[in-house]
Amino acid sequence: MTALFTRLWQALSDLLSQFGGVLLLFLDVIATTFIRRPRWKETIEQMYKIGWQSQAVVIITGAFTGMVFAVQTGLQFHKVKMDTAVGPVVAIAMLRELAPVLTGLMVAGRVGAAIAAELGTMKVTEQLDALRSMGTSPTDYLAAPRFWALVVGLPMLTAEAMACGIFAGYLVAASMLNIDGAYYWHNMLKFTAAKDVLAGLIKSVFFAAFIAMIACHKGFHADEGAEGVGRATTEAVVVSSLTILIANFFIAVVFNTIVPI
C-alpha cells in the first residue's frame, strides 16, 4: 500500500517537474527572443525543414480525412435525405477539429521526433556543452528557432490540410455520392464562418508551442547513450501527441465560451 502510494507520488512529482521544465524553457525562449538578436538564418532553415518538408504528409492526411469523412457522412445523411448537409459538416469538422488535430499529430510524429533526436544526440555528444562553453545558450541557438518555426509553420500546414480536406471532400461528394456540387459548395459557405477557420488556426498555434517545447525539453535532457536518445524521441512524440489531444478539448471549450458558435 505504501509502496503504491510512493510510486504514485513519484510519478506525480516527476510529471510536475517535467511540466515545470517545459514551462521554464518556454519562458526562456520568450525572454531570449526579446533580449537576443533574432537568428534569422537558423529560423528560416527550421521553417524549411519543419514546414516545407512536412507538406506531403499533411496534404495526404488532410485530403484522405476529408474524403473518408465525406463518404461516411454522405452515406448516413442520404438515408435521411440530407445529402447537401455533407458540405457544411465536412467543412466544420475539418476546420475546427480534424485539420488542426491531425496535422498536429502528424507533425508531432515527424518533427517532434526529429527535434528530440537531433538535440538529444547533441546532448550526449557534448555539443550542447560545447555551445555553452562558447558563451552561446542552447535556448537561443537551438530552441528559439525551432519554436518560432513551428509556431509560424504549423498554422500554415493546418490551413493547407483544411483546404485539401474540404476540396477532396467536395470531389468525393460530387463524383461518388452524386451530390450536386453547386449545392454542396453553397451550403458549405452558408454554414461556415471565419471564426471556424480561426478556431482551428488558434488551436494549431498552441499545438505548435507544445510540440516545440516538449521535443526541445526531451532532447536537452536526454540520458547518456543511444538508448537515452531513443527514449527521449519516443517520449517527445508520445507526450506531445497526448498533450495535443487533451489540450484540444479544453481549448475548444474555452474558445466556444469566448466566441459563441
Binding site: 557534448e126 555539443q127 560545447a130 562558447m134 558563451g135 552561446t136 545558450s137
Partner: peptide, 23 residues
C-alpha cells in the same frame, strides 16, 4: 547564472573528449 557566465567562458577554449563538433 548562464548569462553572467558567458563573458567568462569566452576566456576559455574547450576541447571535448569526442571533439563535440556541430554535425
Amino acid at each position: 547564472n548562464e548569462r553572467r557566465l558567458a563573458p567568462i567562458r569566452r576566456k576559455f577554449g574547450f576541447l571535448f573528449q569526442g571533439a563535440a563538433l556541430f554535425d
